[in-house]
Design a protein around this nucleic acid. Structure first.
Length: 845
DNA sequence: AGCACGCCGACT
DNA sequence: GTCGGCGTGCTC
């Protein structure tokens, strides 16, 4: 039996010495929980969802999460004592524990793996965890008294800038085993903060500000100053601007806040050197302020309420009405229909009811634009959870949700792990996006499904939004289980773009192709640039070319770890593997025959960029793909340049298809549609349709009708017809028939098992045995394969795939997963397959 | 995931 | 004769 904390406490306070045990979740891929014993005197410190430190194995001390408290001593072994209690309040809520258990179950992984993915690493203490002085800490102004031990730590940390100590070092320094208490206390007092890896070291964002030196603040002193400035017009200008922006007289304190130096120096009519002279002469003083990475916009126009259009209002009302009878509603709105405003209105209503709100977005759609917009409406109640955030920022959001400071969180996939316990509304925007699915490592979860389950557990409503809903999602609305609201009109009179197909085969035969551009696309780009409008080009492959080949002997460089050719990256002058990261210098001559006739074959974004720069010198081309957005802010920079029209052509992969709104883009070109359609996967058509419609949606906003040119070798393919007419329904009808006929989701559930082994033969043998065991348990018709995937070797592991199709019923599913586990264990228990890795992916995408 | 224990090749 | 390779099994 497990006791809750509330129940355990009064007993522990009594005279009877109950012996408590806790089951903990270790942050490791272990199938079960481990039981530790609570020291008597610590009985009232036990908190479910709190962290404790335990010894695990001979050497390791780990922090882990208390999942349950009970009085049952383990029969088989002697439980070790808990070494330390870190938290006096849960860092993981009961609601989370329930959800995490469901995830581990559903996605066939361990609780430890879920916890590991869920907790920001600074919450996962280890002896390697480090502390650093909080950048905002000043010894004089910190209001909390420090103990002698705390003082010692602060001294050492202050000894040099950015000095860090590991837990082990802190332990040595204090010579006490109980140093976690000291660390915890210092964290609470905002003196230090924690991080896990050197890369997580906190570097605060600092803004340089200026203010009037305080002895000038009085009116008559200032007049004197003005008199002195009479012969220095530039400096006077600066001062005037400052006084204009900062109401020094009306509000005495406003001068203390000052204003951003950049606002003075970068102002077109002001001289930066005059600003510096004023600082040098002591009239202005410069100071640094640590700011949040998402600044609050307090300008008056920011507070301006927006009004929903009639269509938006109607959709909003319909969503609310449907929430009266259904828990899940799909908002199917064409691109540019203004779904975000509807979300904001709904969030506002949900907050009035007092619950929490989670707004999920795919990685690349979560831009500064949308965050700023939400900040304006929700201010400090909004938390942001982004994968490019540092660990400290994540902990801040985590704690903010726990404390109730953040009632709304906008975030990516992993935001479903945050400690919500009173959810009232979840919005999953672009719900069809495959980036909601984590592919590797475990837990291989789909944030949309997790969100739906969280909503279910916490009695919240879920709104799914998309211009191109997943077939599975739309099916649910057709079946009447989920509500459906449709928005067919674009916001602000913008018509849907005109889509033109251009036959690349015909043009190639006529020898009219210019590199990979048809004359139609090239002249249209030229025309748009002439009109000072912008262009987006979509090519779903990065690098310069997918491979190179020797013209004399046909040699093609392959990756030594994977069964793929190496892509040529011109800028880096390298050959790269897109699967394992292997790279090598581009050879000058063929290593097989010594010929210098090496030719690139095929094309990626880099070549498109290159060719276009040569063919249209007036184009200012920027490329956006994984290679150009790797650095932390490069993505924002590329977007900003394009927005401000410093660049006028954006060439990119998937990244350009999602969520970007640029008013001046009037042409979208899809360079090679065929590579998107021809994919060996049951979702290929769905993905292609979504991609075409989404990228087309980037063309034409704010009243301008856009144009889309799709280059294809086979314009007759059925899918184009539906894309051109933007007919989702027709696409859906076609697709759902196929799915029914061939037994794919939503009619069947798919679980994909992958067997990996360094030896190809062993991988095959293990897969054959696994298949046999599966067929034995689930029946022949449920198991497909084994089969080597198209790319049959990655990172030196040979792959074999088995696909399992199951009925959707939950009981069947649960039972089947047990059977699959059994089958996997049979294989793993075989000596010859000990080295094989077996991976289960539930609902793969 | 680590880490220790345990059986087979090139070194003082 | 040992040092050390990493295969295998266990951790409350």
């Amino acid at each position: 039996m497990s006791l809750s904390f509330d129940f355990a406490q009064p007993e522990a306070a009594g005279a009877d010495r109950v012996t408590l045990f806790v089951d903990v979740i270790l942050p490791l891929p272990l199938p079960k929980l481990y039981t530790y014993r609570v020291p008597y005197e610590m009985n009232d410190e036990v908190v479910i969802g709190g962290r404790v430190i335990v010894q695990f194995g001979a050497k390791k001390t780990l922090s882990c999460i208390v999942a349950a408290v009970h009085e049952t001593p383990p029969a088989q072994y002697q439980a070790k004592y808990i070494l330390e209690f870190i938290d006096d309040a849960p860092v993981v809520t009961q609601a989370q524990l329930k959800l995490f258990r469901w995830m581990a179950d559903y996605y066939m992984c361990t609780l430890g793996e879920v916890i590991n993915a869920a907790l920001p690493s600074a919450l996962k203490l280890s002896s390697e965890s480090r502390i650093q002085l909080h950048p905002a800490f000043e010894p004089e102004s910190n209001p909390y008294p420090l103990s002698e031990q705390e003082q010692r730590i602060v001294e050492v940390l202050s000894s040099e800038d950015g000095k860090a100590l590991t837990f082990t070092e802190v332990g040595d320094l204090l010579g006490s085993a109980n140093f976690h208490k000291v660390i915890k206390s210092l964290i609470q007092k905002d003196v230090i903060f924690l991080f896990e890896h050197l890369a997580d070291k906190y570097s605060p964002k600092v803004v340089k500000k200026v203010r009037l030196a305080h002895h000038f603040v009085e009116e008559n002193v200032l007049e004197e100053l003005f008199a002195k400035m009479a012969g220095k017009p530039k400096q006077l200008d600066v001062l005037m601007r400052y006084l204009q922006r900062v109401p020094v007289y009306q509000n005495v304190h406003s001068n203390h806040q000052g204003m951003e130096k950049a606002a003075l120096t970068s102002s077109p009519h002001l001289s930066p050197s005059a600003v510096n002279t004023l600082i040098k002469n002591g009239v202005l003083e410069q100071f640094d302020v640590i700011v949040s990475r998402f600044p609050m916009d307090d300008s008056p126009e920011a507070k301006m309420p927006f009004t929903l259009s009639e269509a938006q209002m109607a959709a909003h009302d319909e969503v609310l009405r449907l929430f009266g009878e259904k828990d899940i509603v799909l908002l199917h709105g064409v691109t540019g229909a203004g779904k975000t405003e509807i979300y904001i209105e709904l969030i506002r209503k949900a907050l009035e009811g007092g619950g929490q709100v989670l707004y999920l977005l795919p990685e690349i759609a979560l831009t500064a634009q949308i965050v700023t917009r939400l900040m304006r409406v929700f201010g400090t109640r909004l938390g942001v959870y982004h994968s490019k955030f540092s660990d400290n920022e994540r902990v801040e959001v985590w704690n903010g949700v726990l404390s109730g400071r953040f009632q709304v969180v906008v975030g990516v996939r992993s935001a479903v792990f945050l400690p919500f316990d009173n959810m009232s509304l979840i919005i999953v925007d672009e719900e069809h996006e495959s980036s909601y699915k984590q592919y590797d490592p475990a837990p291989r979860y789909n944030a949309r499904e997790v969100a739906l389950m969280m909503a279910n557990f916490q009695g919240a409503k879920t709104l799914l939004g998309s211009a191109t809903p997943a077939v599975e999602t739309y099916y649910q609305t057709r079946a009447g289980r989920w509500g459906l609201v449709t928005l067919t009109k674009r916001f602000g009179e913008a018509g849907l773009p005109e889509i033109e197909l251009v036959d690349t085969r015909k043009q190639r035969e006529a020898k009219k192709m210019l590199n990979h551009f048809t004359p139609e696309l090239l002249s249209e780009i030229e025309r748009k640039l002439g009109l000072k409008e912008q262009v987006i080009l979509f090519q779903n492959r990065r690098g310069y070319s997918p491979f190179i080949s020797c013209l004399d002997c046909g040699w093609i460089p392959k990756c030594k770890n994977c069964a793929v050719s190496l892509s040529y990256h011109k800028h880096a002058h390298e050959l790269r593997c897109h699967y394992c990261g292997f790279h090598d210098r581009m050879p000058v001559e063929c290593p097989a025959c010594g010929s210098r006739n090496l030719k690139t074959v095929g094309f990626g974004t880099e070549k498109i960029e290159d060719d276009l720069k040569i063919m249209l010198p007036q184009a200012n081309v920027q490329r956006m793909d994984l290679d150009t957005t790797r650095a932390k802010n490069s993505y924002q920079q590329i977007i900003a340049d394009f927005e401000q029209q410093t660049t006028n052509v954006l060439v990119g992969t998937q990244m350009v298809t999602k969520g970007l709104d640029f008013a001046n883009v009037s042409l979208v070109g899809i360079i090679n549609a065929d590579s998107i359609i021809h994919y060996p996967d049951f979702r290929a058509h769905e993905r292609a349709f979504q991609m075409f419609v989404q990228v087309s949606g980037r063309a034409g906003r704010k009243g301008k009708k856009g144009k889309v040119i799709i280059q294809t070798a086979d314009p007759a393919q059925v899918i184009f017809d539906k894309v051109i007419r933007n007919d989702y329904l027709e696409f859906y009808e076609y697709e759902i028939t196929q799915r029914r006929e061939y037994g794919f989701p939503p009619f069947m559930r798919v679980i994909r098992l992958t067997v990996k082994h360094v030896d190809q033969l062993v991988a095959e043998q293990a897969a054959i045995l696994l298949t046999q065991e599966l067929v034995f348990r689930l029946g022949r018709e449920a198991v497909l394969g084994p089969e080597a995937p198209y790319i049959f070797r990655i990172r030196n592991f040979y792959l074999q795939e088995i696909t399992i199709k199951l009925d959707r019923e939950h009981t069947v599913l649960k039972h089947a997963k047990g059977q699959i586990m059994e089958a996997m264990n049979v294989v793993k228990d075989q000596k010859e397959f000990k080295q094989a890795r077996l991976v289960a992916d539930v609902d793969p995408m």
